[in-house]
Design a protein around this nucleic acid. Structure first.
Lengths: 167, 167
DNA sequence: CCGGAATATTTGCAGCTGCAAATAAAGTAA
DNA sequence: TTACTTTATTTGCAGCTGCAAATATTCCGG
């Protein structure tokens, strides 16, 4: 393997556009949803995840995992959605530590109203620009990237066990 | 074409993991850089872009375009990096409206010190999980997605010309 | 049943971000 | 030169986010 200290030319050809996407896509979705529905990309995802379940209910921690975000973030987003009347929180009767978030009828109506515009934006930004083959490749790539471990492998920004001076 | 109102099953298979990545990757890079170098992913990118030029200099607007972010964001990030002594800003002598950002020696040293850890994280989160073919596919996909137009096509979250009630 | 460890959420604080308005300089036409 | 339009950047304000500490509850061993 080449110098793991830097990226190979092929990797850079993939890294540059990927980094650009990480800045652009979230901004694009956030601003469309904010402008048209007063929602954040994160808050929309929360509503969308809940809307997919027959029970419209999920524990806060499951919601965090489902949307790939931190618990503190989910807690605040849920707080805002609750204030807006789109979801209601209640302590889980089976485990007093857990909190269940349930989409209200108003919340369901909100996602349904917002989905069309959001999907249109997702298409314009992503799918309309890819061939069917690429959509398949993207699915495979994305799935590989979010696989199993995460905290462990990713968080290891620290040197393999050298360079670490000090105490 | 199928109901553009929603995503096809194949598209959803690509969208779900992509959305997860849009939440996870920025967080992962931000927290590694913050923890180890006191930098933001955005501020690191600014330093890295400047470091690639022999002149180590770029106009604020070019910097914004190069990093795919807004001008206001670049303005603040540059302000912070300047306060830290990593870059210096000066009015462009050829155009009084423009501001030139120049990486200082301390700034160059900073990127060089931070790059190893950052690259390690990028590998752990992305390249170590993809085959060489996938890296090539990702490069092609990413390039397609950030092509030509953007504001125009993406910003059109608005209905084709209906649904628009009120003034 | 008691005390400590583990789990689930929330929140204080500080920093980052976007939008839209403000500021400044350059370009253009008369 | 003057007035008006366009381009480049910064900044006030309000909202969002993460980290780490604070809370609350359950689990476990004796």
């Amino acid at each position: 393997m080449p110098d793991p200290q830097w990226l190979s030319p092929e990797e850079q050809r993939a890294w540059v556009p990927l980094a650009a996407l990480l800045f652009r896509l979230p901004s694009a979705f956030d601003s469309q949803l904010q402008r048209d529905e007063g929602l954040t990309f994160a808050s929309y995802m929360v509503l969308a995840m809940l809307a997919e379940l027959p029970s419209r209910t999920m524990r806060m921690s499951e919601l965090a995992a489902a949307t790939s975000t931190s618990q503190s973030r989910i807690s605040r987003v849920a707080g805002g959605l609750e204030r807006s009347g789109f979801l209601a929180r209640s302590v889980d009767p089976r485990d007093g530590r857990a909190v269940l978030a349930r989409l209200t009828d108003a919340g369901l109506a909100k996602v349904q109203a917002a989905s069309a515009g959001h999907v249109r934006t997702v298409r314009a930004a992503v799918f309309d620009r890819l061939s069917p083959e690429q959509v398949g490749q993207l699915a495979a790539i994305g799935t590989s990237l979010i696989g199993e471990d995460w905290g462990e492998a990713i968080d290891s920004g620290r040197p393999a066990a050298s360079q670490r001076r000090g105490t």
